[in-house]
Each structure stands twice: as structure tokens, then as C-alpha cells.
Design a protein around this nucleic acid. Structure first.
Lengths: 129, 129
DNA sequence: AAATATATACGAAAGGATTCGTAATTACAA
DNA sequence: TTGTAATTACGAATCCTTTCGTATATATTT
């Protein structure tokens, strides 16, 4: 898979959030966060088409773009890269940093505990498998 | 702080691992992982000096470079950026992904549990603060 | 049909990262 | 001192990302 650039990631976020969209819609969403010209967004989405990061339906006059990969799949891939480049591959160190820097709420802590239980009980095919 | 590029990060990893080093040493370390010319490494380390990512002692003939920022500090900064660009700022989602993708060992699980206890016990004053 | 609005296509400019060749400098050995 | 090896300095080439101007195509309105 090709690594999406910053700008490409922003566009993917919009597509993941809202489903298949036109260039105009994506550009409007991006414009809420930063100034960006229409043709700039268009160009990047065309490049993303070449890279096979998105596909488009060219039926109507305005094409409809959709993300090729699922959000979680892409995030997983990028996480791997980041893990390797910045934390030398140690997932633990990353998790510790993340938990340390962004104190999770009570709810979130429960969520993590739950996840840990799942992992620990993983070999016994837990109650909620 | 300036965001280190990929190549710069690789060099920082070497400096963090081994402490202050010469260009030659860094280049030899990098060469273990990928083909890279001596002057390429030199050039990047010079650029890093301009960006104030590293400082160098120019006493001897061969300069000794050292990282300006601590490893953890830099990692924290990069983590924030990554969190924002890829996970929309949700530390939880990142942690869940990381734990899901890289099943931690028993020891590591204990480590996380310990960390959670610390966080939970950390704010004795005001359960609902 | 003509004018207007909106879409895509294309290309090029600007900026940054990476790579490396070559020159200049310094140290050391013969 | 002269030559050799190793180091830093400099600049240019290449590649990628981002941005946008302009051309072209298509639809819509009057």
C-alpha cells in the first residue's frame, strides 16, 4: 500500500466520516478547518485515484469518490510505520506514552481493562468471542 | 519545535541509543539497515544542526553530535501529531489498535495494569473532579 | 442559441527532503 | 615537506508534495 500524505489523510478522514462524496463536498469540509482551493482538493483526489487510495464513479458530471481501504486497516498500517520509525517498534512504549500524556477518563480506563481481559483470556475463547 | 523528517528520526534514534557520536559512527549504524552514503548522512546532520535538532562539539577534527531533545520528549510530540492526523485525536482508539495489533506479552500486560493503577490512584481528590 | 455556472484535466511553480559529487580543510605518516 | 587519508563544506540534481492558474467540457438558465 502507498503511504498517504498529510493532505491525503485529511481527505480520507472526510470520506471515512461521510461516505462517498464529491470533490465539492470534501473541499467544503476541509475548508472548515483550513483555507484550501477547490482545484487543490481536486488535484489531490486525482492523485489519490492514481495511487489507488480512492476510486471514483464517473457516471454523472461530478464524480463520486470513495476510500478504497477501511479506516481501521489504514490506521493499522500507519500505526505500524509510526511505531517503527518513532518508537523503534515497541508497542508497549507507545502505549505507555499515549496513556501517560493523555490521561484517560474513568470510562476509557474501563474500556482498556476490558480489552486486557479479552487479551488475557484470549486462549480460552472468552464469553464474548 | 521543528518536526524531524524520516531520515532525521533515524539519526536521532542512533544518537539516543548510543549517546554523542561522530558522523562516521552514525553512518555506520545506518548502513546496517540501508545503503546510505557518508556525505548524505553528513549533510542531513548538518541540516539538523541548523534546525537545532542536534548540537555538535567542533573541537577535534571530527565533530561530535548529540541530540538536543530527550527521546521521550520528542516521541511525545510526534505522538501528538500522529494522534491528531491519523486517529483524529483519540488516544483511546490508538491504544486499542496498538494493543490489538501487537498482542502484548504477559509481562507487558502486567506493566500496563500497573500503569492503569497508577493513573487511577493518581487523583485521590475528587472522584468526580 | 447564448450566457453563465460548475466540473474535470492539465501543467507548472514553489518548497522541502534526500542524495551525492566535488572542493576545501585538516591531520598524520613517510 | 610532501603525500595520503579522513573530515567538513558547498552546491546541485532529483524526487515528492502542495498549490493553483488556465483550458476544456458539460450542464443549466434565460
Amino acid at each position: 500500500m502507498v503511504k498517504p500524505t498529510e493532505a491525503e489523510l485529511e481527505i480520507l478522514q472526510v470520506l471515512w466520516e461521510n461516505g462517498p462524496s464529491t470533490v465539492r463536498f470534501v473541499n467544503e469540509r476541509l475548508s472548515m478547518k483550513k483555507r484550501v482551493g477547490y482545484t487543490t482538493t481536486l488535484k489531490i483526489m486525482q492523485i489519490m485515484t492514481d495511487k489507488n487510495l480512492v476510486r471514483r464513479n464517473e457516471d454523472g458530471r461530478s464524480h463520486i469518490y470513495r476510500a478504497v481501504m477501511e479506516r481501521e486497516e489504514t490506521q493499522g498500517l500507519l500505526l505500524d510505520r509510526f511505531l517503527h520509525s518513532t518508537f523503534g517498534g515497541s508497542a508497549m512504549k507507545l502505549v505507555v506514552q499515549a496513556l501517560g500524556n493523555h490521561k484517560p477518563s474513568k470510562d476509557e480506563l474501563e474500556q482498556i481493562k476490558e480489552l486486557i481481559k479479552q487479551i488475557e483470556g484470549g486462549s480460552e475463547n472468552g464469553i464474548h468471542s
